[in-house]
Design a protein around this nucleic acid. Structure first.
Lengths: 180, 180
DNA sequence: ACCTGAACACCGTTCAAGT
DNA sequence: ACCTGAACACCGTTCAAGT
């Protein structure tokens, strides 16, 4: 039994599964290394630092959004991006910081921009839509976690229904001027 | 020379100034304590934990937005919220996590909702606008910091101009249906 | 090519004890 | 009322050395 060699792909896999179990605040290099039954320093052979590892995780999270396709509806693409972000615990926060550092590939923005080619300022509007989705998803996921900790009493109204109404209203308004 | 007694207000003051100097990632309890010339454990007399201290900082950041006023234009209020978030380094990120945990007072959302009373779903739309502003400001500030570190090459186009265009387009679209 | 072992300079938080 | 001192259980990262 060789002591299990690893590569970037398997490390990211491990980090992604661990993320769902323990959340971003507890996702340390040491914890990932322990899960892989390896010393923490071993991770630095595959990635220069933690940020780079998380950028790999972010790319994997966004790999679930379909490739750019001008025939698709913007609200449809927006929903796909939201679903991808919500598919893993704290997914939005990870994508947010990786995107800001311009690590990883801007797959989501490209898919959104493609669906907006009818609009004169498709790239500007695509960025606005992406920023709204990220803000929405980040807030929602942090709230979900806070609630599971019991740090916060549930909303008066159903939180999922309200959150969905906010998302739909936002996307509808942002795409109202297009393909009229 | 008494060894300088402190209260919550002075601790938050110190943290806010320190934030501008060193940024959120380096803003540790130990660093704040050192700045106040006090032991780290002393901070736990004033706040139950770091999260609560940061919630105080978030409230102070948002205290710059004017009180709810139905006669104000939504785009005007949105700009005031953005300016408040950008006034301190990493202000958006601090407000984002404190708001998600429902610590602190929802001053910004109330001001936005007041400016939208003409709209039937003023609270839903106010939340959407707030989420867009937070996403926009967080991305912008993280990008600014990454750039100052040199971790990222500046945009081809002027980043400030592009970012401003995205913000204006987003706010215009989100408030297009109101007071027609 | 991929990993170990040991170290460095840090964290947030608790708690008995001091004044 | 407000703080010290010491401890506990952690961090990310580096680097010589192993196989």
């Amino acid at each position: 039994m060789a002591p299990s060699r690893h590569d970037r792909h398997s490390v990211i896999d491990c980090a992604l599964h661990l993320l769902d179990d323990i959340g971003l605040p507890d996702l340390s290099m040491r914890r990932i290394a322990a899960e892989l039954e390896v010393q923490p320093s071993a991770l630095y052979w595959h990635f220069p630092n933690k940020q780079a590892l998380l950028a790999g995780v972010a790319d994997r999270i966004l790999s679930a959004v379909p490739a750019p396709d001008a025939s698709r509806d913007t609200s449809q693409v927006a929903r796909a991006v939201l679903d991808a972000l919500l598919a893993y615990r704290d997914g939005a926060e990870i994508v947010m910081s990786s995107y800001a550092l311009r690590l990883g590939t801007p797959r989501a923005q490209r898919a959104l921009a493609a669906s907006l080619t009818a609009h004169p300022d498709s790239d500007v509007l695509a960025d606005a839509v992406f920023e709204f989705i990220l803000g929405h998803a980040t807030l929602l996921q942090q709230r979900m976690h806070a609630q599971s900790i019991g740090a916060v009493e549930p909303d008066a109204q159903d939180p999922t229904a309200h959150s969905d109404a906010v998302f739909c209203a936002g996307i509808r308004a942002l795409t109202a001027g297009v393909r009229t």
